[in-house]
Simulated scan of single mutants.
Amino acid sequence: MPPLGIVGWVIIGGLAGWIGSKIMGTDAQMGIVANIVVGIIGGLIGGFLLGFVFDVGSGGKIFSFLTCLLGACIFLAIAKAFMGRSRQ
């Protein structure tokens, strides 16, 4: 299976960021660019965390998507916690 290119990571990151924002309830506040950024940052976070447990590089596209989705949810939860504190 060929590795994902930049376009593949943007597509997977965008989808993961969008679904992650739906799960975390932040979709109304985000646009497509923010979803892509959250998904890509989520991929980095998820890849770092799951890299300790699994061989993330050999999981394929579905495992890459799930890794991005998990990382996006973690990133959004952290962001919501910090945004909630700054409003008080």
Rank of each mutant, 00 (worst) to 15 (best):
G47H: 11
G42T: 08
I78H: 02
F48T: 12
T67L: 04
Q29F: 10
F75N: 05
F65D: 05
I78C: 13
A34P: 00
I62Y: 10
G31C: 07
A81Y: 07
I78L: 15
A28H: 10
I78Q: 01
G46E: 05
F65G: 01
C73A: 14
G57Y: 08
A72C: 04
L50H: 03
S64K: 07
I74T: 12
G51Y: 07
F75H: 09
C68G: 12
D55K: 10
I36R: 06
G31L: 09
L50S: 03
S64D: 06
D55L: 05
G60E: 07
G25H: 11
A34L: 06
F48Q: 02
V37K: 05
G51H: 07
G43K: 12
A79I: 10
I62D: 09
L49F: 11
C68H: 15
A34E: 13
T26R: 14
I41G: 00
G25W: 04
L69I: 10
I45R: 04
S64N: 12
T67Y: 02
L69H: 01
F65Y: 14
A79E: 11
G39M: 05
G60L: 04
V33D: 01
A81M: 13
G57C: 06
G59C: 09
F54T: 02
G25A: 08
V53K: 00
M30T: 13
I40T: 03
G59Y: 08
T67Q: 03
N35E: 10
I32G: 14
L50P: 00
A81R: 12
T67N: 11
G42R: 07
A34W: 03
L44S: 10
F65A: 11
A34K: 10
S64Q: 07
N35K: 06
G51E: 03
F65L: 15
K80Q: 15
A81Q: 11
